[in-house]
Design a protein around this nucleic acid. Structure first.
Lengths: 206, 206
DNA sequence: CGTGGTATATACGGCGACGGATATACCGGA
DNA sequence: TCCGGTATATCCGTCGCCGTATATACCACG
């Protein structure tokens, strides 16, 4: 009986590939790379065979045949079971429908921002804004190029999503910097209390 | 010598707390909970003591004293070392300055969207939009309430950030739904090719 | 004839959590 | 007087992955 294993998103990618057609692991890897899915899904190709074995054990996929061309290693071709198809649907539906709490590095940084002295924090925020600006431009150009070649936008929604996130974050940072300035946060006691002392501490023992 | 261990963000939170003042682990936990840092940082309180031990071993923090009140368990009070202070600065600076690639569930879902039949995908996107709308309202109200009580906005930037993300995502989804409709994606062969067949597959062997 | 890239798969050591169980004692309320 | 919550900490099994090394063979190129 298939316990729900939804930790590794590589498994979902495998389900979707096998939903298209039966395939052997190595081909899955190259297909995923070719479609740049690593940009949107955290994929460790070293885990591919392990993940596939687990999915077989869970009854989500099954090996259809094992063929050998010449003296190359055997290829095991897998296909989706109906349990696998159901799992794919449910899993995917969950990802789309349910806004999940996602932790980002930047949010963690922001929520500890007061531990940096104001001037440094401001400088770092400005740099981030600039970096995102660059990344955005690059992505935009790449996206337009591919769209220009006629690939349907359905296959590029994730890139559009990334772009919209970058733009939103840039706006947020600009707005934040503006407020820090306009409202004089850098001079507030709230922010300065911790950044006056001479700042020294004990050394660890050797 | 301190290897860089930046995997668990709980360690960063500990550094920041000890930057404010020496503290014992249990107090760190309650302080973090009280300030709702779990909302922005992925914190497993079960790992707190383990993480602290590792940080001591790395020379980032040091135990300052061990006290006992009555017959309660001993409390070990820790403080920051100067290596710890430096690590805190660097780590925090990195989080703020460097836009890191972050993988979100939604992006993974989007990049596999074509594996769902158009009607279902649209329905799910609408539901997500609605859910985010609700969450946004709730967060907005909570934030305004706290701001109204006079807590400086410096300590709430992460909440504002979350809000701005929700709004951006909502706009993105609305825009996407609009385009799907206006551009007739649901009737495109690209999207329908996989969703015609009777859809059955082999069962796994008992 | 060698060299490097592609095709195809296996194996495994190690690490960093995760998270639940365990232990004791204080304290306020019903 | 008992209960449940809070205060304070330890321990450890399990899990999932990460990442890299390993192995063989085909093929194109110079």
């Amino acid at each position: 009986m298939a316990k729900k294993r939804r930790s590794n998103p590589l498994a979902l990618a495998v389900l979707v590939l096998l939903f298209e057609r039966p395939m052997h692991p190595y081909e899955m890897a190259t297909t995923l790379k070719h479609r740049h899915k690593q940009d949107s899904i955290k994929i460790r190709f070293g885990s591919l065979y392990t993940v596939i074995d687990a999915m077989v054990a869970d009854g989500l996929i099954a090996s259809r045949e094992t063929v050998r061309e010449g003296k190359r290693p055997e290829r095991t071709v897998y296909e989706l079971t109906s349990a696998g198809r159901a799992e794919m649907r449910e899993w995917l539906a969950e990802l789309i429908e349910q806004p999940a709490k996602e932790y980002t590095d930047f949010e963690a940084g922001l929520c500890l921002l007061a531990a940096l002295p104001p001037a440094e924090a401001i400088e770092l925020l400005k740099r981030r804004e600039a970096r995102i600006g660059e990344a955005r431009r690059t992505s935009r150009e790449g996206l337009d190029r591919v769209l220009g070649q006629g690939l349907p936008p359905l296959y590029l929604v994730e890139a559009e999503y990334r772009l919209s996130r970058m733009e939103a974050e840039r706006r947020f940072i600009r707005d934040l910097l503006w407020r820090i300035d306009a409202e004089g946060w850098a001079n507030s006691p709230a922010w300065n209390a911790l950044h006056r002392a001479p700042e020294k501490g004990p050394e660890p023992e050797g």
